[in-house]
Design a protein around this nucleic acid. Structure first.
Lengths: 135, 135
DNA sequence: CTGTATCCTATTAGATACTG
DNA sequence: CAGTATCTAATAGGATACAG
């Protein structure tokens, strides 16, 4: 890296879509999405449903740690935003199947990219944290 | 479409890194990252600093709506996780410059992919929401 | 200019009990 | 099986005042 910082940090700049001006960010829908996806369970559920459809209690067992309340709430939120589809099957006793909509599946792609980043840089973050905390 | 599919339901399956098994997700560092990045201000600040380094009050003005408390707290969090660098310049009065670390810049890439998704599907989400709520 | 400290509110999430 | 209802604890976040 030859340049200090007279603009864009040079090494990665060509890989990035573009520099984003500040005023454009404020009105940007990205904020909404990051909060939808940034809660405690949404990503987990989306990725899980990305593998295959699941029934309610199936999700409850798979996620481990989620309360019924939060499972229901999170699924409702995802359903309202059009990411998840809820289908009641006419069985006795009733069963409900949750699956990703096409929109939900399309989200899975950038989501996976971010998850990938997380896996690759897990160590960096933990190291940085313990440099701050531990010492 | 001639499918050689194994059992993956989606037409998008071949675009995805892989189906993620449930037990792998629980222990996965992705959750940590999505929460770090899912709070109200982190993404905004990271993307902003991705454009160029900023000083404290510069960020305070650029973000608009953030309190001093949250600006400081969010920057500290990002610094602790090694995404942001804080440099005190020996001026009078003192000035502090915040910039992305290489780790922070690398995060900018998947972050931009997700932001891109948000921009492209903003309408879909709003439509889904109003189908549920307002009607 | 660059923060800290304090107080207060709203939101998130967990636990538990109950229902069609 | 697939939820709802209620209560409570923890956390996030804003407003304001003050400080080096």
């Amino acid at each position: 890296m030859s340049d200090t910082h007279t603009g864009v940090p040079s090494a990665l700049a060509y890989e990035l879509p573009r520099p984003v001006p500040a005023d454009e960010l404020a009105a940007c829908p990205a904020g909404e999405v990051f909060r939808r996806v940034g809660d405690k369970w949404s990503v987990l559920l989306v990725v899980l449903l990305g593998g295959r459809p699941h029934r309610y209690n199936e999700l409850h067992r798979a996620v481990e740690g989620i309360s019924q309340r939060m499972l229901t709430r999170t699924l409702r939120g995802l359903e309202i935003d059009g990411l998840v589809r809820r289908e009641v099957l006419p069985t006795v006793p009733p069963s409900v199947e949750y699956s990703l909509t096409p929109l939900g599946r399309s989200l899975l792609i950038p989501l996976s990219a971010l998850a990938d980043w997380a896996v690759r840089h897990e160590g960096d973050i933990r190291r940085a944290r313990s440099d701050s905390t531990g010492r």
